[in-house]
Write a protein that binds this DNA or RNA. Structure first.
Length: 488
RNA sequence: GCCGCCAUCGUCUAGGUUGGUCUAGGACAUCGGCUUUUCAAGCCGGUAACCCGGGUUCAAAUCCCGGUGGCGGUACCA
């Protein structure tokens, strides 16, 4: 492993469902690793015992796998830098916290939650930046030693200088400067012995030889704290890239409540992983050309971290639907059938004819935005479904815009007769030629005949071409439907 | 409140580093047309944006300053 090797990581907390923003972030990390022949590492940040939800880790793996973003190293597959779960690395954090205290970069604090709260409120009232007042830093060494020996509950705090500034060069945003006066002496090690994010992230990123930290913008304000720790420990910090936030329709950080922001729910709703990834990549980044349908290898080739847009992006479901439709249309009928399988409720006996099912797919595929649309757009083609739907079908739907009930019934009777007498080949093209010619010969209009015909056969105003439907149904079934509809 | 980030069509964005070729380009959505038996798909076309105010300059979406707005952070959560 050379020093320059690219190693990036995704560091989610196991707090329940995997957020789509996590996958979005994961993909940028993954892409960056891929194009640099580096490693993509999964590290589970479970240092908050209160928020831990059992089973979360399996969900994370399940989601990453479905999106095609499997990590190279992580809790399940291991790797040379484990363990990859923070709760299993407690000794490491304790050790480095002690080291920081020894170097004067951190100190134990015995203040109670109550005192801290009071302090904060009074600072707020005086419009001062809220920060710990370093009371415990001033403790005489003997007193500190005594209280430590007595095992009085305490935390370890970062000793941030009172003056001066620090500048960090962000890969996406350029230089960002913070003045220490506004940086708080954050807790690094909690009284329960667990580290906070600030300590754990620095220790782990360093020990796991992370080269680039690509994380959410919400971490930008705490970067000076992390830099201070690197400095105190005399470690070389990784490069940082703070990516923008994904916003909901309300322009706020996309929350879990926002309709289905769970990553796996997109799978369950019938979106394709490839479409999702393409769509996600286009939030915050854009290719040079004008082509927007990009495969994974296109992305791996063209993605540039430095080209990421620093401003937040609203998650636009409408465009996602369009893109998913594009991907659906590019699938072969066999592939589409595979993908459709978990979503399609085929009538048991009728759905077993392979040729017929494939014909149906060809007939309706352009009408699909999501895989889950399939029942609605295709199932009326099955006799049992049609029979069922007919029981609550309203005949008014048969009447075209400028028609009447009488004329419509007559038109269906007439066309039923025409089709019944027709003895030519039962294909879309031939039926069409014949019926159209008949319509013309009898001085009828296309709309007055074809609209009721199509609605009678499909029971819905939106459906495929009437002759294609006739073709797909076959003559006996078509005739059966027409007679039943008009028998009422 | 304090600190930070951000600011181009409704949305995702190109362009801004090297000011003129941007009367600002593309995509989704929307509107209209074509096709047509409807819807969808497809094709063609339209509407629609440089947050505001100063400055620098022959010339600013692009550079500088100041506002404003949005968002994020401000926990013994991540």
């Amino acid at each position: 492993m050379t020093k320059s090797a690219v190693r990036v990581r995704l560091a989610p907390s196991p707090t329940g469902e995997v957020h789509i923003g996590t996958i979005w972030l994961a993909q940028f990390n993954w892409l960056f690793a891929q194009q640099n022949h580096g490693a993509f590492i999964l590290r589970v940040e479970d240092t908050d015992q209160k928020r831990f939800v059992p089973g979360s880790m399996d969900r994370i793996y399940e989601a990453l796998h479905w999106f095609g973003l499997d990590p190279d190293e992580g809790p399940q597959q291991g790797g040379g830098y484990g363990p990859y779960v923070q709760s299993q690395r407690l000794k490491l954090y304790r050790h480095h916290a002690d080291e920081l205290v020894q170097r004067g970069a951190a100190y134990p604090c015995f203040c109670t939650i109550e005192r801290l709260q009071k302090l904060r409120t009074s600072q707020e009232e005086r419009k001062l930046p809220p920060r710990y007042d370093k009371l415990c830093l001033g403790l005489p060494p003997e007193e500190r030693a005594k209280r430590l020996a007595a095992e009085e509950p305490n935390v370890i705090r970062l000793n941030v200088p009172m003056t001066g500034t620090i500048t960090h060069r962000d890969l996406i945003r350029g230089p960002v400067t913070f003045s220490f006066a506004t940086v708080d002496d954050s807790v690094l090690l909690k009284s329960d012995g667990f580290p906070t994010y600030h300590l754990a992230v620095v220790v782990d990123d360093h020990l796991m030889a992370i080269s680039h930290v690509i994380r959410g913008e919400e971490w930008l304000p705490s970067t000076p704290k992390h830099l201070l720790i690197y400095q105190a420990l005399e470690w070389v910090p990784p490069l940082f890239a703070h990516v923008p936030l994904i916003l909901g329709p309300d322009h706020r950080k996309l929350s879990k409540r926002e309709g289905a922001s769970s990553a796996l729910s997109f799978r369950d709703q019938g979106y394709l992983a490839a479409a999702m990834r393409n769509f996600l990549a286009l939030m915050g980044w854009h290719p040079k050309g004008e082509l927007e349908i990009l495969s994974s290898s296109d992305l791996q080739r063209d993605f540039r971290l430095e080209d990421m847009n620093p401003s937040g992006a609203v998650f636009d479901r409408t465009k996602l639907d369009w893109m998913n439709g594009q991907y659906l249309r590019r699938l072969s009928r066999e592939e589409l059938r595979q993908h459709l399988q978990p979503f399609w409720h085929l009538p048991t006996e009728e759905g077993s004819d392979d040729q017929h099912v494939l014909a149906i797919i060809d007939l309706v595929r352009d009408r699909l935005k999501k895989l889950s649309d399939i029942d609605e757009v295709a199932n009326f083609l099955f006799p049992s479904v049609w029979d069922q739907e007919r029981t609550h079908f309203d005949r008014v739907a048969l009447v075209p815009k400028k028609g009447t009930g009488h004329l419509t019934t007559a038109a269906i009777d007439w066309v039923t007769g025409v089709l019944d007498r027709y003895a030519g080949p039962w294909t879309s093209r031939d039926i069409k030629a014949h019926v159209l010619a008949e319509i013309q010969a009898k001085a009828r209009t296309n709309t007055e005949v074809l609209w009721p015909l199509r609605v009678a056969l499909t029971l819905r105003p939106n459906s495929p071409d009437v002759f294609d439907v006739l073709d797909c149904l076959g003559k006996p079934e078509s005739m059966r439907r027409l007679r039943l509809v008009n028998a009422v």
